[in-house]
Structures are given as structure tokens and as C-alpha cells.
Design a protein around this nucleic acid. Structure first.
Lengths: 184, 184
DNA sequence: TTTGGAACTTACTTATTAGTAAGTATATTT
DNA sequence: AAATATACTTACTAATAAGTAAGTTCCAAA
């Protein structure tokens, strides 16, 4: 695959996560890459195309991470910790996650991008739920709630704590993440 | 105060909460109100003015709600339930809360709107923390975490559950809220 | 050596945006 | 009755947005 194409996706993702979908333009990308506006359209004819590709890339990256954890024999706790680490990194970079950024602009997204975003959310929630169920069976986690609700709350907590923490100066973000998962 | 002015603020708030700050225009407002674009600028010269006024109005509304609860002798549990009800209503209306919507666009907001949004977040978090502390003293709530962390997690949970639930079809949102506060 | 395609640029168009300057109608005050 | 203020409209400007059509450069295959 083309290097420029990959750079556009990467830059687009970072722009969405820092400025938001409706605040970034093809000009932002082309200027940064030292190419012309039309060159971005060459790879992604419309902004919808780019948006959808960015979400698809994120899904792929997540699935690769999960596969990677399996092949390394990570247990459920280690897998959950790895997931939380993604958010710790986002917090350090002062960026939102792709779900949180696009969720706010959901009503302005086109159908295909929406569908992919929904799919991504469902994939993560399913993975989280599975991990919670198996981890509980293995007595790695202790909790009383429905695994599905618990998964939903962990994801919501991660997504919004990035958003809210951006508005708070002093914040023990790591501690907040620990409390959110709070699986003894 | 002018009726038109109030209508603009109300409409602007709803537009931010459904489309996002960078996706709505003065045209959206003027068309809906049957007035001209310039009439909106008459009341709010710049979009920054409008954004700031919308946040300020929300702060005022929140403070009035708190005063109202105090004068009605609501205990801490009743107060927390009232707070959660705001989010249940938002969920029914398929809208985000003002904090969640603007948090995503935070980096594109001007300084004054940012400051007001920060102030609003701090006011809510302080109120939540106080309620948790007092409610725990009165043995209305039982929890082990730091009240500040708990307050942060409750707010984050409410904010993001609106965002994430918008992407999920079937959802027991009320149950999720109950689990988030999960104060026995 | 030509042909074809990939990766662009040039040079636009059209639409929409925030914002403004100057004017008008109507009601209120002096 | 004249002056003033309120609440707009008319008619713009300048900037930026997404998107496109046609051309160019360069490399690799036939």
C-alpha cells in the first residue's frame, strides 16, 4: 500500500482526535504532507471515504492487538491492562480516542462511516464482555454486575475520562482508570 | 431579556448537543427562527459569544437546580437521582450533554468558551464530591473510593454513556446509570 | 521505444461559512 | 413633534470548504 495513503490516514486520525471530524480539512492534511489538496482527493475522493478508512484502520489495529495478545498467551487481566494502556497513552498525548471524537459528531457522519463506527464499538464491547466473563470464571476478576453492563461502563469511562480530563488541570488519570476497571 | 435572544440560546444549545459545535451555523438558527442571519449576529456578534453564553446559561440552570433541591429539602440520594434524571432525559432525546459535546471540540473553542466550560465542569464535580462526602457521612451512600475520583467517574460515565449508547441499538440505559452510580 | 498506469499538480467551481456596514420599521422617551 | 433606541433586514465581503477535470511527470512493462 502507498506510503502517502498511510500518512493521510494517520494524519487524519490525529486531526479527528485532536480537533474533531468537522473541524479538520483536506488542506490541513495536504499542507502537513507538503502535497496539494487534490492529491488527498486522489486517494480519498470524499471526506466520507477518508473517515470510513480511518475507522476501518482502527478496527484492524484493534483486532491485530487482540491476536497479538492471544499469541503471547496474555491472560484476561493482562489483556485488560493492555487495553487501559491505550487510553493512558491517549491521555498523555492530550488526544481523545476515535470512538469518543466521532461519537460527538455522529449525526453529521454519513451512513458508511456510522456503520463502521458502530461496528468498532460493538467489536470492542464484545471483546471486553468476553474477557470479563472468562476472567471471572478463572477468578482473575471479582464483580457482581452483568458483564455486558460492566463492559459498557468500562468503555464509557475510558472514552469520557479522556474528554473530561482534558478540561481538568491536575488529574491522577491512572488512578481514575484503575477505579473504573476496579476489578479486585 | 429578549425572547429572540433566549430562543437563539436554546436552539444553539440543541444544535451543539445534536450536531456538534463545528457542524452548526448561524444559518441553521436563523432559518429555524424565521429571521435573517444578521439578526443572530445582532444578538451574538461572534460564534464565540454565542458559545460562551450557552455554557453560561447551562451553569446558571445547574445552580438554580441545586438551589431548588436545597429549598425542597432533598437529601443527597434524592439530589443524585435528580442529576441522573437529566441524563436519562438527554438519552431519550438522543442528545449529548453540553459538556460531552463541547469537550470533543475543546481545542477548536476560543479561550473564553473554554474557561466557562472548565468552570462548569469544576462546579458539577465539586457539587458531586460534596454530595458524596455528606451522603457517606449520613450513611446514605456506601463506597470506598476517594470521593473526588468517584465524582469524576460518575460524571465521565454519564457523559460518555450518552455518546456510546447513541451507537448501540438496544440498551438498558437506566440500568447502566444505576450501575455507574452503584452506591448501595 | 512506445504504451500505460500510478502519483501527483494546476486551476478551477460551487457552496457555505462567519462576519459587517448601512439602512428601515416600530415603539419609546424627551 | 423630534430624537433615540430596539430589533431587525438588505446586501454585501472575504475566507474556507469539498470536490473535479484535465494535464504532467515518471517509472515499468510490453
Amino acid at each position: 500500500m502507498s506510503v502517502t495513503r498511510e500518512k493521510i490516514i494517520e494524519l487524519g486520525e490525529n486531526l479527528i482526535r485532536s480537533k474533531g471530524y468537522n473541524a479538520f480539512s483536506y488542506q490541513d492534511i495536504s499542507t502537513e504532507l507538503g502535497i496539494k489538496n487534490a492529491a488527498v482527493h486522489y486517494y480519498f475522493p470524499t471526506k466520507e471515504n477518508l473517515g470510513t478508512s480511518i475507522v476501518k484502520t482502527n478496527i484492524q489495529r484493534f483486532e491485530e492487538m487482540v491476536e497479538n495478545m492471544h499469541s503471547h498467551g496474555f491472560n484476561e487481566r493482562q489483556q485488560l491492562d493492555t487495553f487501559v494502556k491505550i487510553y493512558l497513552k491517549s491521555h498523555r498525548e492530550q488526544k481523545l480516542c476515535i470512538i469518543g471524537s466521532l461519537a460527538s459528531d455522529f449525526n453529521t457522519l454519513n451512513e458508511t462511516t456510522r456503520t463502521e463506527l458502530k461496528r468498532m464499538t460493538e467489536i470492542i464491547l464484545k471483546w471486553l464482555t468476553d474477557i470479563l466473563v472468562t476472567g471471572k470464571e478463572k477468578k482473575l476478576f471479582v464483580f457482581d454486575e452483568e458483564p455486558q453492563s460492566k463492559a459498557f461502563i468500562i468503555l464509557s469511562g475510558m472514552v469520557a475520562s479522556l474528554q473530561v480530563s482534558r478540561m481538568m488541570d491536575k488529574m491522577d488519570y491512572k488512578n481514575v482508570c484503575q477505579t473504573i476497571i476496579s476489578l479486585k
